[in-house]
Design a protein around this nucleic acid. Sequence first.
DNA 1: GTGAAAGCGCTAACAT
DNA 2: ATGTTAGCGCTTTCAC
Lengths: 339, 339
Amino acid sequence: MRILSCVTVTSIDVAKLAGVSQATVSRALRDQRGTSESTRQRVRAIARELGYVPQQSGRSLSTSKTRRIGIVVGELTNPFYAALVDPIVHELGKRGYLGVLLYNDDAHEPTDAAIFDGSFDGVLLAAVSDNRLPQELEQRGIPYCMLNREIQGRREISASVPDNLRGSELVAGLLANLGHTEIGVISGPTSTTTGSERLRGFRDSLARRNIAVHPESIRKVPFTIEDGCRAAREILGARPNVTALFCANDLLAIGALEAAALEMRPVPQSLTIVGFDNISLARLRAFNLTTVAVDLSVLARQATMHLLDRVDDPSIEPLRIVHDVQLILRGTHSAPPLR
Amino acid sequence: MRILSCVTVTSIDVAKLAGVSQATVSRALRDQRGTSESTRQRVRAIARELGYVPQQSGRSLSTSKTRRIGIVVGELTNPFYAALVDPIVHELGKRGYLGVLLYNDDAHEPTDAAIFDGSFDGVLLAAVSDNRLPQELEQRGIPYCMLNREIQGRREISASVPDNLRGSELVAGLLANLGHTEIGVISGPTSTTTGSERLRGFRDSLARRNIAVHPESIRKVPFTIEDGCRAAREILGARPNVTALFCANDLLAIGALEAAALEMRPVPQSLTIVGFDNISLARLRAFNLTTVAVDLSVLARQATMHLLDRVDDPSIEPLRIVHDVQLILRGTHSAPPLR
DNA sequence: GTGAAAGCGCTAACAT
DNA sequence: ATGTTAGCGCTTTCAC
């Protein structure tokens, strides 16, 4: 590859060297019918030699398509997102799209601008707790799909989510059958469906079994290890008789394990801890966490496929996909200690 | 915000409603001098009302600037990258740039295209082991900066890296002083400077202390927990007398801890394990990993600042920044067991 | 202070 | 099969 000048190579440069018009270059490189095999070969050869790459801004200005999908993630420290992003990017690649990770931190202005300035054909929302973004995407007619979390009570928008109610019910059943009666819950923010639904499902299931959860045994905190640890210590401090903790995700559960170590409460002999998500860390010997498995790969792929379908054909109806979950019994649960 | 049509709002729409020319809208919204306060106010009001967002493709086509920086990361399952990306995105935001995460998986064609199609003003390379990308960026005159890893022997390109030699020397000193003589090393791929330099620095330091590392006690594997676990089991299988393992990063060390648990080698009584990086997981009670701390936040910020400096002024010389490291003594090291 | 017009690099409709 | 031309939405230069 020889770079001729210090400025960018354009299709005009290629055209000149190939002795054809600029339009022919454009056609040839996109394998459009209506170009002879010979010129196509020649154009391609020269384009390669010059290291020509069609400029995205020109292309998308003229087509109003970008072949890019924004993926809004947050709290990238959460290994959960890693498991989600991997299959998404793969699936997008298969269909010729590029996945662009948008970091949804507190100062969301730059991310916002990018989403609405025509940079993306569609957006996957994996880390959204309020409905600001979904609402604006809706208004502007930008296809999107919620991932993992969805918007409370808005079941008519596209989403690919785990069966939170079923998962928490499974945990409630497990703990009840083991004989636990003093149970604590570390839930996520109520603004997230992963937080609120898992809490609600769990309490309702326990209630059906005549087990009540004391208000002091419930904490609603952000989905981080640190918050999980703090919350667990608070619950164990306020209600020392608690023998089991249900955590709304694995990060919180890992934090709870940390707290158990600090509070000298051996797991599972003195304290049962159950998580949700089954992130890859959960199966490490160091944690060996009993949890609810969500097939994140399938969750992510389905969302991606549905979104791309809608991008290709906006008339396609929104779809809400609920994924089955499964209880994974590892080493952090047991019957409560005898008094 | 009322959206008038189903299509995108352009500056012409704003201009019409404001009763000014399209050029004036462009000027007013960018606070250019040469626009009266009153029209500026009016234009802004109408733009907001219409939900107008300047289209990036149009803008960058005309300015050949994107105010976007590509961040090439890989193995997103590695929590290491999370710690890196967070400060980068923050720093970029402060200077009005958007950080776009590009996932560098095996099939890198889409990522490549994005990098070279004029989508970015500059690129941060955080997960690159060969010099294909750096070389091409160089040829095309796209500013870039290596992060954490750099290219073997190419010290004249911009990079922000930890002092790998010093770090591994610290570990060698620690292990030697504790009395270990049978030592294993789990290193990363030799194609990465983090892998090769940490291995070399460690062996050289031990050699200076007259301690040799048996070839069977060295494994070079990808930087993952699974590979770390497998490598540790292989080493412990082949050389049961090994009493200490130095791992080229914390993920490998966590894998080694897993292996120790499986092989019934209590840590640190029977086996000392030391990592590198000090990722956030390392300090959890479940691991409590002795390791070498790199201030990733500073590493990332410096790289970002230097890159943006070069973007703003391409005449600025490349800069190689080497960051100091620090030994963090936690709970996975001790003297070797008595025979 | 503001408008008119050119041009960024590309695709697509039309002409040949 | 290929060339010509218009136009995507923006910034910028040049008139006024």
